[in-house]
Design a protein around this nucleic acid. Structure first.
Ligand code: FES
Ligand code: FES
Lengths: 142, 142
DNA sequence: CGCATATAGGACTAAATTGGTACCATATAA
DNA sequence: TTATATGGTACCAATTTAGTCCTATATGCG
C-alpha cells in the first residue's frame, strides 16, 4: 500500500506538538497531549533526537524541544529519521538484496523514480501539512 | 522505509517479461524466465489479471498476455493493482483507522501529498523504467 | 469423448516486520 | 541526596506479507 510506518505518523504528530527554543517538554506530557503511551512516545522521541531533529535535556524539568522551526523541517527528513532512506524497490536501495537482482532491468529506473519522490517529500514542510488553508506548491524536476 | 511490497516488484518484472497481443505465455514459463517459483508467479498473475492489466487464456497452449503496451502502463497502475490505493498515512486513506484521528491535524495535508506522489507515479510508464537511456521527465502540479 | 494442459479461486502455513513494553544506567535541578 | 526525566537496549506480541497447496473449470487435440 506504500505507506509510512505507524510510528512515523506518530513522529509527525509529536513534532507538531513541540516547539523550537521554548521550555523542554517531557515525554509524559507529550504522550497525554497526543494520546499515546509513554514508552511508545519515548521510543519515537529518542529516535528523532538521534537523527538531529530534536534535542533533549535530561533530569528534572527536562524534556524535548525542536532544533528547527517546523517550516524548516521537510517531510523527507522526518521519514528518513524514522525509517531510514527511502527505497521504493529493493534494488533502488544501495543495501537491498533482492534475489532477482540478476533478472532485474529496472534498478536504474527505480532509482530515478525514487529520486523524484524524495524530491517531492523534501519540498513539503511540516508546517505546510499542518496548515489546511495553504496550498502546497511543488516544483519537481526530473 | 516507504517501499513497495516484494510481490509488487515481482509483478513489475513479470509485466516486463510479457508482451501485448502475442501468444499467451504460461505461468510456468514465466517463472523460469524470471527466476521465481510457479505458485508465486501464478498468484501475482492472477492478481494483475483481476486488475485488468493482463488477460489470460485457459487450457492447453493458454497463458497470460498484456492488455496494453508497456509504454501505456503507468507505475501507479501496477502498484495499485498489487497493493490497493496509495496511502502514505492511515488518515490519508479513506478506509484508514488510526486511533489518533482525533488528535490529527495533518489528514488533509497528507492527502495532498499523497495526491502529488500518485501523480508522479502515474506519469512514469513501465517502458520508461526499463529503458535506462531515456530520461524521465515529470511535470507535477499541486 | 477423454486426456493433457493451464488458469481461477480461495484457504492455509510460515516468515518477516512492526508495534509496543520494560529495564537499568545516566544526567540534572533543587 | 532525592525526585525527575532521558539514553540505550533488549524483549515480546501482534500484524502483515510471502509463499504454498488444493480443487474446480476451461481449452485444444487426438
Ligand atoms: S526488483 Fe528485485 S532487484 Fe530489482
Ligand atoms: S496520523 Fe493517524 S490519523 Fe492522521
Amino acid at each position: 500500500m506504500i505507506k509510512m510506518a505507524r510510528l512515523t505518523e506518530y513522529g509527525f504528530m509529536l513534532i507538531m506538538a513541540l516547539k523550537k527554543s521554548s521550555h523542554p517538554v517531557s515525554a509524559e506530557y507529550l504522550a497525554q497531549t497526543v494520546g499515546l503511551e509513554v514508552p511508545t512516545v519515548s521510543k519515537i522521541l529518542k529516535q528523532l533526537r538521534k537523527a538531529g531533529l530534536l534535542d533533549s535535556k535530561r533530569g528534572a524539568y527536562g524534556g524535548y524541544f525542536l532544533m528547527k522551526r517546523k517550516r524548516d523541517i521537510s517531510l523527507h527528513e522526518v521519514i528518513e529519521a524514522m525509517e531510514g532512506p527511502l527505497a521504493l524497490t529493493e534494488c533502488a536501495d544501495l543495501n537491498g538484496d533482492c534475489r532477482l537482482i540478476d533478472h532485474c532491468y529496472m534498478s536504474a529506473g527505480m532509482r530515478r523514480v525514487n529520486q523524484v519522490i524524495s524530491q517531492a517529500l523534501q519540498n513539503v514542510t511540516v508546517s505546510e501539512i499542518m496548515d489546511t488553508d495553504r496550498k502546497i506548491t511543488l516544483q519537481l524536476k526530473s
